[in-house]
């Protein structure tokens, strides 16, 4: 009887698991990462970029998209380790020239094409496409399935 109820439960919950498609990403669970990476922009979840990208970004924080975002060495090591451990898996990228901007990834450009970007900036007061939470209200929790 117990086995049957476990099987039943598994069958019941399976479709839910299958529904959680790749529009959602695991949230950041590290307070220092949330605080430091979220000081100027939304703290982007590490699964949005492969490890090569995070390594390149963390290696040049004093030239961080037009600003100096340098950290002390302890904080930097801790944050980099978290980002690398939780980075996107399975994407083949060039180690010499990895993507640095989530907004330039092919899937992102597919989800938000030029016309939509122009419309959002004009009508929704979206200053930059890096401001995910302007529209995705659960962005900081990794929930992007609301579009």
């Amino acid at each position: 009887m117990r086995i049957i109820s476990i099987l039943f439960a598994a069958l019941f919950f399976m479709p839910l698991a299958a529904l959680a498609d790749d529009d959602n990403v695991p949230p950041i669970t590290h307070p220092l990462v949330s605080a430091e990476c979220g000081a100027c922009h939304m703290a982007f979840q590490p699964a949005f970029l492969p490890a090569q990208s995070w390594e390149a970004i963390m290696g040049d924080l004093s030239n961080h998209f037009g600003e100096d975002a340098s950290l002390d060495t302890d904080a930097m090591a801790e944050i980099e380790a978290y980002l690398m451990l939780n980075a996107e898996q399975g994407r083949l990228v060039s180690a010499d020239n990895p993507p640095l901007r989530i907004t330039e990834l092919r899937w992102f450009r597919h989800e938000h094409n030029d016309r939509e970007v122009a419309w959002l900036k004009e009508n929704r007061n979206v200053k930059t496409m890096a401001d995910c939470a302007a529209c995705h209200r659960g962005a900081d929790k990794g929930y992007f399935d609301d579009d």
Binding site: H41, M42, E67, K127
Partner: peptide, 26 residues
């Protein structure tokens, strides 16, 4: 400095009493 940030006022506005805004909208 960096061309994106030529002044404190770029993000902090020209009055210290105002709420500022980062280039990423925070």
């Amino acid at each position: 400095g960096k061309p994106e940030t030529t002044s404190c006022t770029t993000c902090h506005t020209n009055s210290p009493s105002n709420v500022g805004e980062t280039r990423a909208g925070k």
